[in-house]
Amino acid sequence: MNIAFFLLPKHEVASVTLHSTLRQTLEKMEFHRYTSIPIVKEDGTYAGTVTEGDLLWFFKNNEELSFDNAHRRLLAEIPLRLQIKPVRIDADMNDLISLAKAQNFVPVVDDTEKFIGIVRRSDIIEYCTRQLFRAEAK
């Protein structure tokens, strides 16, 4: 199965850049009700994924920081706790499934490392469930 079938294209994915502020990132995550969001560099390459935990730890470790002044801090300053790796669009389902076990989505890049979208864990689970029921029906 080609993972392109599951791809949610980048124009439908909420993302941020390293130049986004902490406040912009929080507001985008809140608006979309996401617990993590991909970071895309200005040149279109995938830079990582920021999580709620990353933001919370940053607030905890910077006592002078508040929501009122969060617009002064850039996402590039925030350490990412997890190094969420993308898959290439030509990856196989096994690669996708192994990454999806530990994250809500899997970032997808093309052969030039440009971010092209995500595959949601819920779509992978749905696919696996259909395959399981087909196998049981035989």
Rank of each mutant, 00 (worst) to 15 (best):
P107Y: 00
R23P: 00
L65K: 04
A100L: 04
A100D: 00
D111H: 05
I37K: 00
R134I: 12
L82A: 10
I84D: 00
I118R: 04
L82S: 06
F58A: 05
L80R: 15
P9M: 07
D90M: 01
R33G: 09
L74S: 12
F6R: 04
T35Q: 13
K85H: 08
F133V: 10
L99G: 06
G48P: 05
E77T: 01
D92V: 06
S98N: 13
L99H: 06
A100F: 03
E126R: 15
I89H: 05
D43E: 13
F5E: 14
F5L: 14
D111M: 10
R134M: 13
K101A: 11
L22T: 07
Q103D: 03
E77H: 11
V40F: 05
E64Y: 14
L75N: 04
A47C: 08
D123P: 01
A4S: 15
K101T: 11
V109P: 04
K138Q: 13
V40L: 06
F31I: 05
L18W: 01
Q103S: 15
V40H: 01
P9G: 10
S20K: 00
F67H: 01
T51M: 13
D90W: 07
F6C: 03
T35M: 10
G53A: 11
P79M: 12
A91P: 07
V108W: 07
F105E: 04
T17I: 01
F133T: 14
R134Q: 12
Y127R: 04
L7C: 05
I78A: 07
F6P: 05
R81H: 06
T112Q: 14
T49P: 00
T49M: 12
L26E: 02
T45W: 04
Q83G: 06
I37G: 02
L7Q: 04
P107W: 02
E12L: 15
A47N: 02
H32W: 14
I84T: 11
R134C: 02
L82D: 06
L80P: 09
T35R: 15
E27T: 08
L8F: 06
L74R: 15
V87C: 07
K101W: 08
I78S: 09
I89A: 10
V87Q: 02
V108C: 10
H71E: 12
V108M: 11
L80H: 13
K60D: 09
A76N: 09
I89G: 04
I37C: 03
Q24E: 15
I125T: 09
D95K: 04
I37V: 13
V87H: 01
I118W: 03
Y46S: 08
D110A: 11
H71D: 14
A91C: 13
N104L: 08
V106H: 08
I97K: 06
L96F: 05
A14L: 13
R72W: 04
S15I: 05
G117E: 05
V106F: 06
N61W: 06
E77P: 07
D43M: 08
F105I: 02
D110L: 13
N2I: 03
K60V: 09
P79C: 09
L80K: 15
A76P: 00
T45S: 14
I118Y: 03
R88S: 05
